[in-house]
Write a protein that binds this DNA or RNA. Structure first.
Lengths: 192, 192
DNA sequence: TGCAGAATGTGATGTACATCACCTAAGCCC
DNA sequence: GGGCTTAGGTGATGTACATCACATTCTGCA
């Protein structure tokens, strides 16, 4: 399906834009293709874009002490991702983004987003709504972390995104859940 | 200090509003006072307001199995709080809010916020920015949960909000950190 | 096609934390 | 001011998980 139509359908769910306004908005996006394993944002990079996934699957992750990786988000089609902390505060990336599979993304610069938000009220409305949705998801995940054990979080994740089971290696799922790959392995193979 | 001036200073940091626009915005807020221990939102309530703290300290929390409490947020002056999930999705409250100390808050209904956001572009801008800030804080806390042990999270919390140490009973700090009160007690008293 | 590296399984052991049980000290209320 | 509630400390014990170590596939690619 056409990237432009995917983005359009996504935005029009929340905001009311004329065709002309949407075309103007869309003219600020750039389509890029990435290969499996390729990095989009690496730790220490200057960050000035955010990314809307058209196809494939990305991960946004943090690496601690150059050893442990924690996955903040698997980004699937119609999801947005970036290191938003670095993007908004104009600091260097602490969160990295790369491709779990081949992927196509639409890139939007921070400056362009802010410009468009100033020019088109409904665009600002859309981005408010989108951020709000991210905030609620993040809060829900935080609660799940405090409240549920690993097994429950694992089942919750697979219930929400069944595709992940085949798409994503298990050690990445462990990194999302915040446990070691060994523990995850023992969890779903008998050995209780 | 005057509630109106506190809110005005808070909003004008991010958005550009004329006095007339701000007065109009402010006319939708209602000031309320609450006593220490009083509930603002209880589990199961219909939620249709969010709250801007003028003075005092609130907590937003979740209770699991009618037993364990997890604190999502301590809300201090100039912070916003509510059960945003229930507020936006028009569902019943799963998150409760009550007062750790006597408090004054400005109440804004969801309907009024949406109305004003539609009418005043800069108001929408402010609320986008505010949500964004909440999203980043939530993501940071999530990372801290995965990455740091309890002691590090405790020190991080006190470094960020030194007032909490005297203002808030220790078992509430434990509920924020997601550990038992016993563990927290052992942490900062010698017994390593 | 054959080999290197990645992904995964599984045992042994250590540790941070929960839980239960009980104790002390400090508000608070009629 | 005596009793009740709430906050907080501390020991004993159990458990979920990390970590280390190694074995076993699987997979991409030269």
């Amino acid at each position: 399906m056409d990237p432009k139509e995917i983005l359009k359908a996504h935005i029009l769910k929340t905001a009311t834009l004329t065709d002309k306004e949407f075309d103007y908005l869309f003219s600020h996006f750039k389509l890029k293709s990435f290969k499996k394993g390729q990095a989009i944002i690496s730790e220490g990079d200057k960050v000035d874009h955010e990314y809307f996934v058209i196809s494939g699957c990305l991960k946004a992750f943090f690496i601690n002490d150059e050893i442990k990786m924690y996955i903040l988000q698997f980004a699937m089609p119609t999801w947005w991702t970036s290191d938003y902390g670095a993007l908004y505060n104009h600091t260097r990336a602490t969160i990295s983004v790369d491709c779990i599979s081949n992927a196509e993304v639409l890139c939007l610069s921070n400056d362009d987003r802010e410009k468009i938000c100033g020019e088109i009220h409904q665009a600002e409305h859309f981005f408010r709504w989108r951020t709000n949705r991210g905030y609620l998801a993040s809060q829900k995940r935080l609660l799940s972390f405090m409240n549920n054990d690993t097994k429950a979080r694992y089942e919750e994740l697979l219930a929400m995104y069944p595709q992940l089971y085949n798409l994503v290696p298990k050690h990445l799922i462990a990194a999302y859940l915040g446990v070691s790959r060994e523990t995850l392995s023992r969890l779903y193979n008998g050995q209780k």
